[in-house]
Every structure is written in C-alpha cells, then in structure tokens.
C-alpha cells in the first residue's frame, strides 16, 4: 500500500482544472513512493469523467456512484468517501483546496483519525529518517497570511493534504492502461443532518478561469470607477479570451462590487496571464491571491506603494487619466 489517492472533482461533466493539477503532483508523489496513482470520483453517472481521468494515466479510477450523490452534499459525500478510502487504504490522500475539499478534508481526517494540512503549495516525500517515518508527506504551506512558509510533517494514515489552486501545472494526458473500478457506497437518506433547501445563484464569476484580470481597489474612489475598468475589459476582450474584473476586499467592503470578484486570501486565488492592479496598494492578504500571475501591471499614483514591488510593469498615474487613454490606444491597435 504505497498508493496515492486523489479526490477528483467533476464540473459540468468533465474534470475540474484543479483535479488535473492534483493528478500532476499525485503522479510525482506516486513515483517517488514507487506506488500507484488512484483517482476517486464521487457522483452519479460518472463514466465519461472516469474515462477522461483515465486518459491522464492513473492506475485506477474508482467510480463511487449513487443517486443520492448527484449534487454535492457534504453528509452523503463524506460518508461515501470515508467508505471508499477505508476500502482503498491509500498511503496518501489529496484533495483540491476547493469548496468541496475545504469541507470534506477536515471532517474526513477526523473520521479517519489522521492529520490534514490544508492549502498546501508544495508536497514532497520525506526521505526516510526515523523509524516509521518513511514516506511521510512534507506539506509546504503559507502561514500567517503568507508572511511565512512553513513545512509541516504529520503522523497518521492516510497522509492527507489539500492543494492550493493554480500552483501546480495541470497533468498532461498519458497512456492509459488503468482500469475503472465501480464502487457502491452504502448510504441512505437517514444520514443527512444538514438539509439543503436551495441554492441561490448569484451572478458570480469564475475569476480563476480568467486569462486577464483587471482588478480595482480602494483607489478607484467610487463605484463608477469599475465602469471605467469595464470599458477597458470590453476593448481587451477583442485581443484576449476571458477578460474579467477583480477587486480588493476594500472595494467589496465599500459595496462597490460583489464578493465573487475579490482576489486574495479570503477571495479567489488566481494566476492569470495578465493581472492589472488598479488603485490597489498591495496588502499582503491581497498579494497572496495574485502574486503568481504571469505578468503583473500596476497602476497607482503612489510610486512607493507595495504593489510596484511585485509588478512587472508600473504606471505612476491616476487611473482616471490613464485607463481611458489606454482603452483608446488598444482600440486603435486591435
């Protein structure tokens, strides 16, 4: 039992992008351990997704299916996952630090009486030192809002961690020689303790899907500032896919924009190709959410502000002057 098991997530019928990232790191860990890589999927009607998962080269894909698992319900899912993990008995269990992972991770760790490290940015195998230590997972995780990076080591089986999104590259497809294993969990209505009444959809945006993010902060001065950013977005959309609006928490606090646009520690953590920070000072809690972006452009009249320290390009200027001009120039160019 030197296997690495990852919990795959399925969105709209296909594998979630972050599951691919898990597959990538899982494969590395499995080869270090000389063990297999397993994927477990939970839901109903998972065949297509299981086949897709297989195409990334794991040894086994466990398909935990039940009519009650159709939508994510923590109580059903937790029970099913617990049964599956107990059966599979892997050495390492990984999840995304996603809505699902954040909820299931700690609860499952408790049920399995093991230790979990959440929101890791790197994972590796501890070279065996002390007795019984071989194969322990070293979990690297930013702490204190990102002011320090800590490497943790924990006892317990399986070794559990959730992985921060967008840190690892997604896995590439590989020869698939693995098999799909069906599993039927023993669950029924009676185990539900938290009843879901309805999901109220809000106009939320999936910031992590964006290639370009134009983010506004307190420096916009008011709600109308986001309209200026919208104008820029419209122009950029001609040259880039998926241009979206982001923001700092201050902009949310002021009620200028809804929370789903928030980037940062308590918002979305993203790494788009281009991140444009407009009127954002660069507080550490914001930086952790975007510092991995490939290129960072900062616009801020305060040349001393922290954002310039992490930016590739900087413009020291009032955004109300520069952004409309920029939009005009881009319009001419595209």
């Amino acid at each position: 039992m030197n296997e690495v098991l990852i919990l795959g997530e399925v969105r709209a019928g296909s594998l979630d992008k972050h599951t691919l990232e898990l597959l990538n790191i899982g494969k590395n860990l499995a080869s270090d351990l000389d063990g297999g890589l397993f994927v477990v999927l939970i839901g109903d009607g998972l065949l297509a997704a299981a086949k897709e998962a297989l195409s990334y080269g794991p040894d086994k894909v466990f398909k935990v299916e039940h009519a009650l698992l159709n939508n994510f319900n923590a109580d059903f899912w937790l029970e099913s996952l617990e049964q599956a993990v107990k059966q599979i008995n892997p050495k390492i269990l990984l999840m995304s630090h996603s809505f699902i992972g954040m909820e299931l991770g700690p609860r499952l760790a408790c049920r399995l009486d093991t230790r979990l490290t959440t929101d890791c940015i790197d994972l590796s195998i501890n070279p065996a030192r002390g007795p019984g230590e071989d194969g322990l997972l070293l979990r690297t995780k930013p702490v204190s809002g990102g002011n320090a990076i800590s490497v943790f080591k924990c006892q317990g089986v399986p070794q559990m961690a959730t992985l921060r999104a967008n840190v690892y590259k997604p896995a590439k497809t590989a020869d698939s020689q693995g098999e799909i294993v069906d599993m039927a969990p023993e669950i029924d209505e009676s185990i539900v303790r938290v009843e879901s009444l309805e999901i109220v959809k809000e106009d939320v945006i999936a910031l992590d899907k964006a290639d370009v993010v134009i983010a506004g902060g307190a420096g916009l001065g008011d709600e109308d500032g986001f309209e200026i950013l919208e104008d820029l977005t419209r122009v950029l959309n001609k040259s880039f896919n998926n241009v979206m609006i982001g923001c700092s928490r201050v902009a949310v606090d002021k009620g200028w924009i809804s929370p789903d646009h928030q980037v940062g520690l308590t918002g979305t953590i993203i790494s788009p190709d281009i991140y444009v920070a407009v009127g954002i000072s660069g507080a550490i809690q914001h930086l952790v959410g975007m510092v991995q972006s490939k290129k960072i452009i900062a616009i801020n009249p305060d040349s001393g502000c922290n954002m310039f320290k992490v930016a590739d390009y900087g413009v020291v200027e009032d955004y109300e002057t520069i952004i409309p001009l920029l939009a005009k120039k881009l319009e001419e160019l595209s």
Binding site: N147, A148, Y313
Partner: peptide, 14 residues
C-alpha cells in the same frame, strides 16, 4: 520555516 520566497519583481516603470 521559511521567509516567503522573494515575491519581488523588477518593476519597469512606464
């Protein structure tokens, strides 16, 4: 325990 890897980049001011 590590200090965060230097997040700093060389900013080219336009």
């Amino acid at each position: 325990l590590l200090s965060p890897s230097d997040m700093g980049r060389d900013c080219r001011f336009i």
